[in-house]
Nucleic acid binder design. Sequence first.
DNA 1: GTGGTCTAGACCACC
DNA 2: GTGGTCTAGACCACG
Lengths: 125, 125, 125, 125
Amino acid sequence: MAAPLFSIWPGDGRPLYRQIVDQVRAAVASGRLRPGDKLPTHRDLARELVVAPLTVKKSYDLLQAQGLVVQEQGRGSFVAPSAVGTSPGAGKELEVRANALVHEARLLGMTVEELQRLIRRQWES
Amino acid sequence: MAAPLFSIWPGDGRPLYRQIVDQVRAAVASGRLRPGDKLPTHRDLARELVVAPLTVKKSYDLLQAQGLVVQEQGRGSFVAPSAVGTSPGAGKELEVRANALVHEARLLGMTVEELQRLIRRQWES
Amino acid sequence: MAAPLFSIWPGDGRPLYRQIVDQVRAAVASGRLRPGDKLPTHRDLARELVVAPLTVKKSYDLLQAQGLVVQEQGRGSFVAPSAVGTSPGAGKELEVRANALVHEARLLGMTVEELQRLIRRQWES
Amino acid sequence: MAAPLFSIWPGDGRPLYRQIVDQVRAAVASGRLRPGDKLPTHRDLARELVVAPLTVKKSYDLLQAQGLVVQEQGRGSFVAPSAVGTSPGAGKELEVRANALVHEARLLGMTVEELQRLIRRQWES
DNA sequence: GTGGTCTAGACCACC
DNA sequence: GTGGTCTAGACCACG
C-alpha cells in the first residue's frame, strides 16, 4: 500500500505540468527512479492524475529537453541513460519552496515548532 | 534589521500576484497587520519587489475584493476595519503547500529529520 | 519586397513545428537574426503561416529549451543573448536533407546537372 | 561498390515509411526498377535499414494501394506490371523538398554557388 | 497585447 | 498500445 509515486496538489499554485516535472526530477535525483526505468505512459499517468494527456506529455517533453527522460516512439518513456543519480537542480528547487513556506508561516505567526509539527504530521499521514 | 515584510520567490512556481496576496493574507490572519494599518503604495512595493506596478495593483484589487484591504483614492491602501484577526483560508493554503513539499522531499530521498533541519536552518537565516 | 523570413512547405514531409524551428535556427546561425532581435509573436507568425498558434508556440518552446530563444511574459520573444552567431547543428541538419535529396534525385534518374539546374531555378524564383 | 538502392536518413524529418515509399516511387519513375523486378522482402529490407519490419510492410502496402507494387503471398513483392515508366508524383514531390532546402540554405546565409557545391560534393561521395 | 496553461478531440507513425 | 502532431477554444498572468 505504498503511496503513489506521483501526485498533484490542486491549490499548490504551481502549474500541473510543473508539479509533474518537479516530482520526476526529485525521484531521479534521489535514485528512486534510475536510468532505464520505464515511466508510466503519458496517457496512463494522465488518467491516474485526472488531467489531460497533453498536460503530462508536456511534462515529459520538458524532461526530455532537459535530458532526464527519453521518449521512444511505440515503446514508451524511460529515464535517460545519462540521467545521473543526482540532478543538481532538484534539491535547489525544493529549498526555494521551503524558503517561501517558512516566510509565510512566519507571517502567519507560527513558531518554528508549530511548523515542524505540521511537517511531521503530514509526513506521517 | 528585520526581514522585509513581503518578498517574492522567483522559482517558487506560484504567480507573482498570488505570492503577494498569500503573504498579506497571512500577515492579517496572524495580527501581524491589523485593521487600519497602512500598506505600502502599490508603486513602492512594486519597486521593492522589482515587479510591474500593475502586478501589485492586481494583488491589492483582489485583496480588496476579499474584504481584507481597502484602497482609498489619493490616501493609500489600508487593512480593512472588518479584517478579522484570522482569515481562515490562509492556514489551509499553507497546509496544501506543506503537503506538496513533504511529498517531494520524500521523492528526493530525504528523511523527515533532514527536512526538519532544512526548515529550521531557513527559519534562522 | 523581400521574401518573407519564414515559410512552411506543405508536402515537405517535416512536421510544421519543425520547419519553423529549423528556419529560426538557420537564421540565427547565419547572423540573419541576432541576439536580442525580436521575433514575431507566436500569434502573428501563426496568422501569417496559417497554422494554429499553439503550433508556433511549440516551436518557440523548443527553441527556448535549446537556448536559442527567450520568451518573456508580456513582452515578447527574442533571440537569446547567448545565441552564438553560428549554432552548429543548423548546417549539419541541412546537409542531411541535401543528402537525402541527392539520393532520391539519383533514383529518379536525374543527372547532377539536372539537379543543379533545378536548384538554381528555384533559387531565382 | 554501388550504393545501396534504398536508405533512410535519420534526421531528415520525413517519417520512415515515407522515405521508403518516396524512394521506390523514384526508382520506378526513372526505370531504375522495372515492372516485374523483385523487391527485397519486407523483413530483409527492415533488417538492412534497421527499422521495424512492420514499417517496411506498411510502405509496401501503400505502394500496392497506389498500384506500383504487388505483394504475392509466399513469393515476394514485385514492381507491378502496370507500373508506368514515370509515376508523375515523384518528381513534383522532390521539387517541393528542393524548394524548402533552397529557402533554408538562404536563411543560413549560403550563396547559390555554395549550395551547388554542397550538392555536387554529396553526389560524388 | 504578450506569453502561459489547460482541455477535448482527431488523426498519424511506429513497435 | 506507444509516442507524435495538429487544431480550436477558453481562461490566466504580466506589462
